[in-house]
């Protein structure tokens, strides 16, 4: 029996060496698939439902029992969103959208830059102090959470950065999670590649950006996902209080404070808030797959 299995599996190997896992039964596959679909449905339902609600005209919004589809989809809720924002806070919604995009793009770019530079030296160079920095980074993974908000606020206040773009941008530039991700991935790159470049006289900076970073594309994509998501969802909170500097999530929160009464607009704004990170995720995730499939260099 065992021998037959072995033979089968070797034959399978020959037919489709890289397509299917070697072990596992058909029935198991079906069960797993059903399990995932059910769990997936639970995960997606609230998101799906908010998209549906955001497209419903008023007549359909409050129908009970609720319908899981739209009969006459409308863009009213989305245009109402602009009107509500303009009426309530004297600042057009486009300003908040601009703020969010501006902050997100600056943070992503700066975050990628500093994390890649630092991760490269920590992964590929030995110098006095590298071990202790590595340890601090791992500790900081734990601490880089909302528990430091209060102290961060005080630091900001000391630096006179409260109520400026800087208050939103600067704290998110050096993230320990970004550094850790990049370092982990870069340390799997062969030293031989780095050495070769060194012999050819490339500077550390060039080695980092022309050899090591392009070779850790999956980690880079993951970092982009995290950075974008973190920055995009950032609520200014106490750091920025002028209307002109508030970000989209803050405003969406203010809109949804009206609760179920302004349902259409609330759902529309939460959908708008969700779209950019989803797009970034899909694009980046596709890239991860692509590079994973043909990432070369083995012994």
């Amino acid at each position: 029996m065992a021998r037959r299995r072995k033979k089968q599996s070797i034959e399978k190997l020959k037919v489709s060496a890289n397509k299917k896992p070697i072990n596992g039964s058909r029935a198991g596959d079906v069960c797993i698939f059903i399990f995932l679909v059910l769990l997936g449905a639970f995960m997606v339902f609230p998101l799906y439902y908010s998209v549906i609600q955001s497209l419903k005209p008023v007549e359909e919004l409050f129908v009970f029992p609720p319908k899981l589809y739209v009969i006459n989809p409308t863009g009213r809720n989305f245009s109402d969103m602009f009107r509500v924002a303009a009426n309530s806070w004297q600042v057009p919604l486009s300003r908040y959208i601009f703020n969010s995009f501006f902050i997100t793009i600056v943070i992503c770019a700066a975050n990628l830059f500093v994390c890649c530079c630092a991760a490269f030296v920590l992964a590929k160079c030995r110098f006095p102090g590298d071990k202790i920095i590595n340890q601090i980074i791992v500790l900081a993974l734990l601490f880089a959470s909302n528990a430091t908000w209060i102290m961060q606020f005080m630091v900001m206040a000391k630096l006179h950065m409260i109520d400026t773009y800087w208050a939103l941008i600067l704290p998110s530039i050096s993230t320990s999670i970004g550094l850790y991700l990049m370092r982990q991935s870069m340390s799997t790159i062969h030293d031989a590649m780095v050495e070769a470049a060194k012999v050819d006289g490339a500077s550390l900076f060039r080695i980092c950006w022309q050899i090591v970073v392009p070779n850790s594309k999956p980690a880079l994509m993951t970092l982009i996902i995290f950075a974008f998501q973190g920055a995009w969802n950032m609520q200014g909170g106490a750091l920025t209080y002028s209307e002109e500097l508030k970000t989209l999530p803050t405003v969406v929160q203010q809109i949804s404070a009206a609760g179920l009464a302004r349902q259409g607009v609330t759902f529309a704004s939460s959908v708008v808030l969700l779209i950019p990170p989803l797009l970034v995720f899909l694009v980046a995730q596709g890239n991860v797959m692509e590079t994973m499939a043909n990432s070369g260099m083995k012994d």
Partner: peptide
Amino acid sequence: CYFMLIPFMIFFIIFTVVPV
């Protein structure tokens, strides 16, 4: 190496280490 680390460390120290 230290030059490459500096940009990260500046922000890291001010906004993570000091608050903690």
